[in-house]
Every structure is written in structure tokens, then in C-alpha cells.
Write a protein that binds this DNA or RNA. Structure first.
Lengths: 156, 156
DNA sequence: CAAAATTAGATAGTGTACAATTTAATAGAG
DNA sequence: CTCTATTAAATTGTACACTATCTAATTTTG
């Protein structure tokens, strides 16, 4: 019953793995967003969807999913919750009734003003300067691009 | 019904935000793990829990949660699933019956050998050299430490 | 020692995530 | 024009993740 050790040399240390750092940091930041997004009454993924719609309204659910890099099966209920909150409304296309366009309501557009301060507030909350953020952003995008390219060459 | 634009200057661009890069990269990597973890039959968070137990067996649920930086209410069902898979068993402490110790089964210990190759395989899958990984790891840990410190000073 | 506070784990409810399946509509091939 | 393949969305099922709440056990305090 005593604590035996399968990995005495510590060949698999959770705290030394980049993936775990990414995974746990991402969640830590999402927790920081909770406070900042309270005034808007939305979650972090919902905030991301709004950000995309503020830039271009009337997107299909599929386009929102692609922008957020989430599955369409995740985007559908996410958009439905935004609709229930009164921030968007969904409108099925008349030309192609499979398509559902998502439009911001006036309330949804009105949230933009309150959201403008969030990036800076979050920068403070996580202690990252703009310069450092830009560098990290570039490195992460390199990783994502590598994964995407690799997937492409596997499929093709 | 036409696409009006609330954010014409692009003051909130999802693709320029570090947080989104972290969030989406983390998920992209978790997707890469699916293939690598298939032989073990576990998910990424379950693999993290195993990694912690291989280093030190007989941990409390709370200690596993702390190591994974997840909530205890998330750790309970995660450990229960590992138990259902036959990789761990739970044993309530006799001295303090609130505590539940989690022990690896022989099968759970046996997975270690198959797991040893995973970090390198994942390094290849995401195209990150060890040197770059170490640098990124340090930067992410700095962010986490900043958030934790800030939380401490708020509470205290 | 008894009441209050704390701690450990479990449970309920909401919201992602994603694979797999279903349904509906469109486009293409014969 | 019909059959087939493809596409878009919804649905189903499993697994996190976290807040809030609950129960039980222990520790602290008066």
C-alpha cells in the first residue's frame, strides 16, 4: 500500500512539459476573463464570437466556428446561448435553407463599447507587455501553422 | 439585413490576441494528443493524472487536482474514470475518512512504458525544438506565476 | 468538551469541446 | 430527370471545467 514510484528518474514531469504549460496557462487566463466579462454577461468563447461578429456581421455558424477554430457542433449551441441572451438573432437563408446567418442585435452591437477596454485590462491581469505578447503570439501561431500544414500533408 | 460593421477600425481582432492564440493552440495540441494517447486509451487530462501518479503514487484527489491545476470537482470524476478503466483504485483513509488516496493498479503502472515515447512524438507533431520549448515554457510559467501572485495579494 | 470553522470529497447545473450520426438541401454524373 | 456525393446544420453521447452546494469528518476556539 506504500507509495511505490514508477518513474523514479522523472522522465515524465508534468511541470516540465510545454503542453501542460499551455493547457494550464490557457485555463488560468480564461479564469481571469470571468471577472472582466461579467459586465457583458458572456463567457470567453461567447466573447470571441462577438468579437468576430463586430468585425463582420451576418456570418454563417460555420464561419464563426472557423474563426474561433472550434468545431461547428460547439459553435451551434454557443450561438444559441448568445441568441437566448438577446445579443444575436439567427436567420435561415432563403436561397439555401441549410445556412443560418447570425446577426448582432442592437444590444449585441451595444456591447462593443464596454468591450473596448478588455484587452488592456487583461494585459494588466496577466502581466504581459505588448511587446512580449506580440512575440509569444508569433511563436504560438508558428506552432499552429506547423500543425495545420502537417495535417494538410497527411490528408492530401 | 446587410452586414453592418461595429468595429470598422478592427480594434478587437481575435487573431491578434495572445489569449486567443493560447486558447486555440492549446486545443490544437490536445487534438494532436488524441492519436498519441490512443494506445493508452486515455484522454489528455487523464494522461496528466497518470504522469503525476507515476512520479508519486497514493496521492489524495486534492493533490492530483493541485498538480493538474484543475478544480477538485473536476478531479473527482476524472479519477473515477481512471478507476473504471482499471488504471487506479481509490482507498479511503482510515485515519481521516475525508481523504481518498488514489493508487495505481499494476495495469496503470504498466502504461508507463508506452508513455515514455510520447513527449518526443508530440514534439515532432507540433514542430517545436527542445530549446524553443524550454523558452516558451519559462515565459508561460512567468505568466502563471504573475496571475497567482496577483490573486494572492487580492485575497490577502 | 461543545459550537463554529475548516477541510475533503461528491453532486448538480451550465458551458464548452469534439466525434459520430442524422437530416436537409444542393450539385453533379449518367 | 434520377441517383449519388457533398455540404450545412442539428443532434447525440462522452468528457472536461468550473461554480455552487451538500455531506461528513476534523480541527479550532471559547
Amino acid at each position: 500500500m506504500d507509495a511505490s514510484v514508477t518513474d523514479p528518474e522523472g522522465r515524465l514531469r508534468i511541470e516540465e512539459q510545454l503542453c501542460f504549460a499551455l493547457y494550464s496557462t490557457s485555463r488560468a487566463i480564461t479564469r481571469e476573463y470571468v471577472t472582466l466579462l461579467e459586465p457583458l454577461g458572456v463567457t470567453y468563447p461567447q466573447y470571441l464570437a462577438l468579437m468576430v461578429l463586430w468585425r463582420r456581421d451576418g456570418l454563417m455558424v460555420q464561419e464563426i466556428a472557423a474563426s474561433l477554430e472550434i468545431d461547428q457542433a460547439t459553435a451551434t449551441p454557443l450561438v444559441q446561448r448568445l441568441e437566448k441572451l438577446g445579443y444575436v438573432h439567427r436567420q435561415r437563408s432563403r436561397e439555401d435553407e441549410r445556412k443560418v446567418f447570425v446577426f448582432l442585435t442592437e444590444r449585441g452591437k451595444g456591447l462593443f463599447a464596454s468591450a473596448l477596454g478588455i484587452p488592456e485590462a487583461l494585459g494588466c491581469a496577466i502581466g504581459v507587455t505588448e511587446e512580449k505578447a506580440a512575440r509569444l503570439l508569433a511563436e504560438l501561431n508558428t506552432i499552429k501553422a506547423f500543425i495545420a500544414e502537417r495535417k494538410q500533408s497527411e490528408d492530401g
